[in-house]
Design a binder for these strands. Structure first.
Ligand SMILES: [Zn+2]
Ligand SMILES: [Zn+2]
Ligand SMILES: [Zn+2]
Ligand SMILES: [Zn+2]
Lengths: 163, 163
DNA sequence: CACGAAGTGAGACTGAGTATCAAATGGATC
DNA sequence: GATCCATTTGATACTCAGTCTCACTTCGTG
């Protein structure tokens, strides 16, 4: 719940209204416990019988992404998901291909590596993205955390791309 | 053109027929000179008055991706593009946000870094993806290589995500 | 309460990608 | 070349994500 407050705070201090709908989305995002798609939220809303429009959910996600409260993830399956994350500093995501859980990963040495690559190729690098997929401790042990709800949803269908 | 042959070769040695349509797609892929979307190929086909079905193009791309002759790229804009690349070994892509040109980048130290991250978080890592976006030497110098055709197409619209 | 700005929902619309299925083609075998 | 079967193909319909529009509601402020 504290997480929800943080999101609302972010909205507010960026000059956006913390309306009922946005609070609702904030709540769902905060309790998602992993990655989620727009469709996931929509469905969850429907299940919980909340009345929120399709467009509104998309708009809220877009807004939160803009504020770096959530970040878009491109799953190996090709679909677009989001994860809640710390807006403070640049980082990447380690995502469980079993349950959807996600950890923030500091950039660390990567920054240097990226620099070198840019240098070597004569490119002026603007952005980079690193995404890691694997099995979290629980899923690796065959104990997917079935406690949390939203994970088992549609977006869990993975296709772990070859390496 | 030699590149085209390599693609056809790959199809053949994987037991797929190198039909006229697939040769056609191979040719377009080989001469794309950067990243391209399915829509790009479709449009190029239409422009050059070749008769190839929508589904066929999607199927050909899927097939080539499976053979690791091309690889899917998730552009910052969110759209799915492909780049021609060396199927031999694992690598990543450095993509020009100006003209769409792309360079293969060896994994290098990243493998170790990825390992460490997995270790530290207790994850068993299965895949990772690194994508670098920036301006190629020409684009940085304000001389986008207007020679090549396909680049200026639709897929060039970028939204360089913040860093 | 009155007002303008910000936010919202229903529904139309677009565009990517998939599914279906009958027709075309390829390759093998005689 | 004719026959047979597996592979490939294209037209079409369809699904689904995401956007757009526009009238309506809600918010903050005086
Ligand atoms: Zn897990
Ligand atoms: Zn980074
Ligand atoms: Zn360039
Ligand atoms: Zn790698």
């Amino acid at each position: 719940m504290d997480q929800t407050e943080r999101i609302i705070q972010a909205l507010d201090s960026a000059g956006y209204q913390a309306t009922a709908n946005r609070r609702l989305v904030a709540g769902m995002v905060a309790t998602s416990g992993g990655h989620f798609t727009a469709a996931d939220l929509l469905e969850r809303g429907r299940r919980e019988r909340v009345n929120i429009g399709r467009a509104t959910v998309f708009r809220a996600l877009e807004l939160l992404a803009e504020l770096h409260v959530i970040e878009r993830l491109d799953l190996p399956s090709g679909s677009h998901a989001y994860v809640l994350c710390d807006p403070a500093e640049h980082h990447h995501h380690l995502v469980c291909s079993g349950c959807g859980r996600s950890e923030d990963v500091a950039d660390g040495e990567l920054a240097r590596l990226v620099d070198e690559i840019g240098q070597r190729n004569g490119y002026r690098i603007e952005t980079h993205r690193l995404e890691l997929f694997g099995k979290c401790p629980d899923c690796a042990a065959g104990t997917p955390p079935n406690g949390a709800a939203s994970k088992a949803s549609s977006s869990a269908g993975q296709r772990p791309g070859g390496h």
